[in-house]
Design a protein around this nucleic acid. Structure first.
Length: 847
RNA sequence: GGGCGGUUAGCUCAGUGGUAGAGCACUGCGCUUACAACGCAGGGGUCGGGGGUUCGAAACCCUCACCGCCCACCA
C-alpha cells in the first residue's frame, strides 16, 4: 500500500470515529414531522455475502440523506439486519455441521465450534436457534463495518434486527390485528411446497427454470368403449388423476363429455369434463387433472368438488394408498393396488420412470415421448422442483385486494417511474393468496395455539390467542391464557402452532419496527409514513409488495412517499456477477484500492434504476477527484491576505457561473437525480475552477488581491459543500483543516444561490478562456512549456468580444506569461482569432 | 406468450426537436512555486437497421434486429 493510500485510510478511520462519537447523524426526536426526513432502510440479509451491490444501493440512499440533512432536515436513517429466516438456517447447518430436529430436548451444555467439520449432528430447536444467534452476531458485525467504512450516515443508535424482541413483537401484533379483522385466514389447502426445505413457499419466492422433459402420450379408456390419448410430462401423477378435461368446442372429444374415462394401470373411473381453460393446441387437446400437478389442477379440483387423491408426500415420495376404498375408487382394485405398490415410497423421478415402464408393459403408451423444454417451478433457493401438497397454512388474502393494492402503489412516487409499472404488473399477475407460514425454526413464531379435544385430537377450528400485552410469545414454550404448561399436548389441553412466519411477513413491517408503533404514537407519527423506501428492483415483488400490502391492511396507510430503486452491479464485461464465474468484485477490495470516497463516487455516478458496471476506471476517477480536491484546496487555503469584495470581472464571472451550477445541481437533486448533480458539480469544478480560474487568478491571489482572495475562498467553501454528500471524507478533512476544533461540514447547509450576488456571466469567462486556450495550443504545438514567454499577443474579432477579453486581460497576461498585447477590432470576423508571438527561451533561474 | 428497459467514440456512460459530449484508453507536448499518482493540446462516432413526422431527428411515431430484466396455469 502506497503512502498516500495509507493516509487516506487513516483519514477515513479518523472521521468515521469522529462521526460516531460526536453524533452528527443522530435523529432529533424533538423536531417535527415536516422538518424530518425518514428512511425505511433495507435490512440486508446478513447471512448473505457482502456484495458490491450493497455498496451501490446503500450509497444511493446515503447520498439523498446527506443532501436532505444539508437542506436542514432532521434525518431519521435507521439500520436493520435481516437475520431471520432460511439463509441463516442454511449457514448454521454448514458452519456447525448440524441439522435441527425439533423432537430433541434442549441441551444446555452443547458447545460447538465455528467451522466444525465431521458428521452432521442433530440438535434441538432451541439449540439450533442459539447457533443462529451466534452466526448472525458475527455476520452483522461485518455489515456494520462495511457500512460505516463506506460512510453511511445512519443513526447507529437506531438499529434493529428482524429476529429481535421488538421485531417479534411488531410482527406478532400485526398478525393478531389482521386476524381480528379477518385479513388473515387459516386454510387446509394445496400449497407450493419445497420437498428439501420441508416448507411451504410463497408465490414471490418461486421462479421458473427451463427444464428438458419427456412429453408422454398415454392412452385412456372410456367407460362404455373407445379410448383417447392424453399427453403429460408428469405420468407419476396418474394415480392422482381425478378428471379429464377438453375444450367444449373440441370436435375430437365432444362426444365424450359426461362419460367417465378409465385410467390405465389404476382403472379409476374419472369424469370427462368440458372447460374453456383447456387449450386444443396443447398436447393432444385433452388432459388429465391430478391432485396436484399445477395451479390449474387446483382450480379444476375445486370446481369438481371431489376428495383429492394425494400422491406425493411432503418428502417428495409417493404416499401409500388403499385402492378400492374412497377416495381411491377403481373398477379393478387388485390390479390398481399391485401397480401402485410398486410406486409407494419412490421419489418423484423414479416413480415417473416406473409408471412409464408399467404403461409400456400394459400397452397404454401411444408412441414415443416427445422431448420438450418447459418452465418448472422452483423455490428460488431450492434445488428440486416444487410440489403442491395439502397442508395447513396461514394466508393473507390478497387476490381480492388487487385493485386497492395497485391504487396504493399509485400514491407512491417511484424513481425511476417505470418501476411503478413493474409493481402493478406483479399485483395484477398474482394468482395465489400470500402464504405467510413456514415450517422452519429460525423465525418469528406464529403466536397461536390450538385446543385439543377430549379425545386428544387437535381442533384447528379452536384457535387460542395470546393477550397482546404478553407479546412476543413463543407458543412452543408459553402456554395460552387460561391453560397451564402441563396441559400441552394433553386431552382438553392445547398445542402450539409449530410454524414461523415467512421472513417477508416481518420485513413487511420495517417502517414500523423502529418507529415505536403502536405504544409510542408520538414517535410513530413523526417517522411514519416514511419519506423514502430505497431498494433494488429484484425485490419489488417481495419487499415492496408486502410492505404496501401490510400497511394497507393494518391501517389503510401508504408506507412511503417515495420509492427509489437501484439497479444491479455487473462486472466490466457486463455479465452478472457470480461466484462460480469468479468475477465477483469484493467491496473490501475496492475500498482498499480506491478509498471510501472513490467507491462512493462510482456509486453516485450510476443513475437510479439502471444496472451499473463495476468499472475500475470509474473508481479510479473517483480517487482522482479526491486528490484534485485536496490539491486545489491546498492552493486556495495557502494564500495569505485579507478577503475583500468580489470586484474583478473574472471573479464576478466565476461566481456567476457557480451560481448556475448550484441551481442546476439543486434541481437535479430535487428530481432524484444524484448522478446528474454530481456530474454538473464535477464538470464545473474540473473545468471552470481548477483548469481555468485557478490559473487565471493565481497571480493576483499571490499578490494578495482582496477580490481574488475573497472569491477563491467563497467559491472553495461552496465547492466543498456541493461535494460533501458524494465524498464526505475528503470534504470533511479539508473543511476542518482550517478549523481549530472539529465542526462537521455535514451539518452545514447545502449551498443556495442566495449566498452569491445576483449577477450573471455576460460571456467574460468564456472569452478569456477561449484566448487562454489558444495561447496554450500555440505553446503545445511549438513543443514548449506552458510558462514559455509570449512576446506579443494579438486578438482580433468583433468589438463586443474584444471588450469581454479586455476585462480579463490582466489575468490572461499573467497566466499566459504575455509581455504585450493588442486587441484589434475586425468587423468581418464572427469570432475571436488570436496571433501568438512566442518569445525567446526563458533564462533558467539561478539555482 | 405478455410487459419493461437498453443499443451513442476502442471501453464505461451522459445527452428528449436546433452545429454529436464526458471520463478512461490513444497520440503529441510539458516538471508550471496546488497537483507528473499531474497538466496542456489533439485525433477518433453514417448515434443498431429500415420507414415516417418536421424547415430541422440521437431524441417524436411505426417497424425490424440484437442484448438485458420482470412476469406467465408448466396438460
Amino acid at each position: 500500500m502506497s503512502k498516500k493510500t495509507g493516509d487516506l485510510r487513516e483519514l477515513e478511520e479518523r472521521w468515521r470515529a469522529y462521526w460516531l462519537d460526536s453524533g452528527v447523524y443522530r435523529y432529533d426526536p424533538t423536531r417535527g414531522r415536516d422538518e424530518t426526513f425518514v428512511v425505511d432502510t433495507p435490512p440486508p440479509t446478513v447471512s448473505g455475502s457482502l456484495h458490491i451491490g450493497h455498496v451501490l444501493s446503500y450509497t444511493h440512499t446515503d447520498l439523498v440523506v446527506r443532501y436532505k440533512r444539508m437542506r436542514g432536515f432532521n434525518t431519521y436513517y435507521p439500520m436493520g439486519w435481516d437475520d431471520n429466516g432460511l439463509p441463516t438456517e442454511r449457514r448454521v447447518q454448514n458452519v456447525f455441521s448440524v441439522r435441527c430436529d425439533p423432537r430433541l430436548p434442549y441441551d444446555p451444555d452443547l458447545a460447538l465450534e465455528f467451522g466444525r467439520k465431521g458428521d452432521v449432528i442433530s440438535v434441538s430447536r432451541p439449540n439450533f436457534i442459539e447457533l443462529c444467534g451466534r452466526v448472525v452476531e458475527e455476520d452483522e458485525q461485518k455489515f456494520l463495518d462495511l457500512f460505516q467504512r463506506l460512510g453511511l450516515s445512519c443513526d447507529w443508535n437506531e438499529m434493529y434486527a428482524t429476529i429481535d424482541e421488538r421485531s417479534r413483537y411488531v410482527s406478532q401484533l400485526s398478525f393478531l390485528n389482521l386476524l381480528d379483522k379477518g385479513e388473515v385466514v387459516h386454510r387446509f389447502a394445496p400449497t407450493m411446497w419445497d420437498i428439501d426445505f420441508q416448507s411451504a413457499v410463497a408465490q414471490a419466492e418461486v421462479e421458473d427454470r427451463e427444464k428438458d422433459s419427456d412429453f408422454h402420450k398415454i392412452r385412456f379408456g372410456v367407460e362404455d368403449g373407445g379410448d383417447f390419448v392424453i399427453a403429460t410430462t408428469r405420468p407419476e401423477l396418474l394415480p392422482g388423476c381425478i378428471a379429464v378435461v377438453a375444450h367444449p368446442d373440441d370436435e375430437r372429444y365432444k362426444h365424450l363429455f359426461g362419460k367417465n374415462a378409465i385410467t390405465p394401470l389404476f382403472h379409476a373411473p374419472v369424469p370427462i369434463v368440458a372447460d374453456e381453460k383447456a387449450e386444443p393446441e396443447k398436447g393432444t387437446g385433452i388432459l388429465m387433472v391430478c391432485t396436484f400437478g399445477d395451479m390449474t389442477d387446483i382450480e379444476w379440483w375445486r370446481q369438481l368438488d371431489v376428495p383429492p387423491r394425494e400422491v406425493i408426500g411432503r418428502d417428495g415420495r409417493i404416499l401409500a394408498a388403499e385402492w378400492g376404498a374412497a377416495p381411491w375408487t377403481t373398477v379393478q382394485a387388485d390390479a390398481a393396488q399391485t401397480h401402485y405398490d410398486k410406486l409407494v415410497g419412490l421419489p418423484v423421478e423414479r416413480a415417473r420412470r416406473t409408471v412409464v415402464e408399467m404403461l409400456e408393459g400394459s400397452g397404454a403408451i401411444a408412441g414415443e415421448p416427445e422431448k420438450i423444454r418447459r418452465p418448472v417451478k422452483f423455490f428460488e433457493k431450492g434445488d428440486r422442483p416444487l410440489e403442491f401438497v395439502l397442508s395447513r397454512q396461514w394466508f393473507i388474502p390478497v387476490m381480492n385486494r388487487k385493485r386497492e393494492l395497485i391504487e396504493q402503489g399509485r400514491k407512491i412516487e417511484w424513481h425511476p417511474a417505470m418501476f411503478q409499472k413493474r409493481y402493478e404488473d406483479w399485483v395484477e399477475g398474482l394468482n395465489q393468496d400470500w402464504c405467510v407460514s413456514r415450517q422452519r425454526y429460525f423465525g418469528v413464531p406464529i403466536p397461536v395455539w390450538y385446543a385439543i379435544d377430549a379425545e386428544g385430537q387437535i381442533d384447528y377450528g379452536r384457535v387460542l390467542l395470546p393477550r397482546k400485552e404478553d407479546l412476543p410469545i413463543d407458543p412452543s414454550s408459553d402456554a395460552p391464557p387460561g391453560y397451564t404448561s402441563d396441559q400441552r399436548g394433553q386431552p382438553d389441553g392445547f398445542a402450539g402452532d409449530p410454524d414461523v412466519f415467512d421472513t417477508w411477513a416481518t420485513s413487511a413491517l420495517t417502517p414500523r419496527i423502529p418507529s415505536g408503533w403502536p405504544g409510542d404514537p408520538e414517535r410513530h407519527d413523526k417517522v411514519y409514513p416514511t419519506d423514502l423506501r430505497p431498494q433494488a428492483h429484484d425485490i419489488i415483488r417481495t419487499w415492496a409488495f408486502v410492505t404496501i400490502t401490510r400497511s394497507y391492511l393494518e391501517d389503510g396507510s401508504v408506507p412511503w412517499r417515495h420509492a427509489a430503486i437501484s439497479g444491479f452491479v455487473l462486472d466490466p464485461d457486463r455479465k452478472k456477477m457470480s461466484k462460480s464465474k469468479g468475477n465477483v468484485v469484493l467491496p473490501t477490495a475496492v475500498l482498499d484500492e480506491f478509498g471510501s470516497d472513490g467507491v462512493r463516487y462510482w456509486a453516485a455516478s450510476a443513475r437510479l434504476g439502471l444496472d451499473a458496471t463495476a468499472d475500475p476506471n470509474v473508481f479510479r476517477e473517483g480517487k482522482r477527484l479526491v486528490t484534485k480536491i485536496r490539491n486545489a484546496s491546498r492552493l486556495v487555503l495557502g494564500f495569505e491576505g485579507e478577503s475583500g469584495a468580489t470586484t474583478h470581472p473574472v471573479d464576478v464571472a466565476l461566481l456567476a457561473r457557480l451560481r448556475v451550477v448550484i441551481a442546476r445541481a439543486t434541481d437535479a437533486w430535487e428530481a432524484w437525480n444524484h448522478a446528474l448533480a454530481l456530474e454538473t458539480i464535477e464538470a464545473w469544478f474540473w473545468s471552470d475552477f481548477t483548469d481555468n480560474y485557478l490559473e487565471l487568478s493565481k497571480t493576483r491571489a499571490y499578490a494578495g488581491d482582496p477580490s481574488a482572495l475573497g472569491t477563491l475562498r467563497a467559491a472553495h467553501n461552496i465547492i466543498l459543500r456541493l461535494f460533501a454528500p458524494f465524498v464526505p471524507f475528503v470534504t470533511e478533512e479539508v473543511w476542518n483543516s482550517i478549523r481549530t476544533s472539529p465542526s462537521s461540514i455535514h451539518l452545514e447547509r447545502w449551498p443556495s444561490v442566495e449566498e452569491l450576488a445576483d449577477v450573471s456571466d455576460d460571456g467574460t469567462f468564456e472569452a478569456v478562456v477561449k484566448v487562454l486556450t489558444s495561447v496554450r495550443r500555440t505553446k503545445s504545438e511549438a513543443s514548449v512549456s506552458i510558462r514559455w514567454p509570449v512576446d506579443h499577443l494579438e486578438v482580433s474579432g468583433p468589438q463586443a468580444a474584444l471588450d469581454l477579453v479586455a476585462r480579463g486581460i490582466d489575468d490572461l497576461s499573467a497566466a499566459g506569461n504575455i509581455a504585450a498585447y493588442e486587441l484589434k477590432p475586425a468587423l468581418e470576423l464572427a469570432d475571436l482569432e488570436t496571433d501568438v508571438q512566442l518569445g525567446e527561451a526563458p533564462e533558467k533561474p539561478a539555482e
